[in-house]
């Protein structure tokens, strides 16, 4: 178990996400329970704005492991490239444990710029009810929890969209 101080949200990094995207991630996690759900929210390069939700298939089909299919992965990254996007949020669910990165999550985290979102469905499974929804930076094996701010809508219409 990680030391307690590392679990406290810091104020220097915040995940800002709109209500519809938040709800869609939670819904995906509930629908796939007890299998781990996984996906990404892409945004314009350098914007830190999660605007385009992409549900991915968990090729492992497991309640304790997720992995994007390798062909899907290539297709996804090509698409991000073509659209001048990057992974802003990389999410998955834990279905029998808390929404905190496991050792596996930490070892395999490979996007230092992304917000790693974990949703835990251990309380209510496929049913409605509160879920744990938490966000982290995972860089060089160091986990830093960050605050999650939910907005009615994120501005999807500013100059960053025009990035060429």
């Amino acid at each position: 178990m990680p030391a307690e101080p590392a679990r406290r949200p810091t104020l220097d990094r915040v995940l800002r996400i709109d209500q519809a995207t938040y709800d869609a991630i939670v819904e995906h996690a509930r629908r796939d329970h007890p299998v781990e759900a996984c996906g990404m929210v892409a945004g314009p390069l350098g914007s830190d704005r999660p605007v385009r939700l992409i549900e991915m298939v968990n090729a492992a089909g497991s309640p304790t492991f997720y992995e994007y299919d390798s062909t899907d992965l290539l297709r996804l990254y090509r698409e991000l490239d073509d659209r001048d996007e990057e992974p802003v949020v990389i999410y998955h669910s834990h279905t029998a444990t808390e929404a905190y990165p496991s050792v596996t999550d930490i070892n395999l985290a490979s996007e230092p710029g992304a917000h790693y979102v974990l949703v835990s469905t251990q309380e209510h499974g496929n049913n409605a009810g509160p879920v744990e929804f938490r966000s982290y930076r995972i860089i060089d094996g160091v986990v830093t929890e960050e605050e999650v701010t939910i907005a009615a809508a994120v501005d999807t219409n500013d100059a960053a969209e025009e990035h060429s």
Partner: peptide, 12 residues
């Protein structure tokens, strides 16, 4: 040639 790290993890 394209190199991509897997996007993977999970509770186990």
């Amino acid at each position: 040639v394209v190199i991509l790290p897997a996007v993977a993890g999970g509770a186990r």
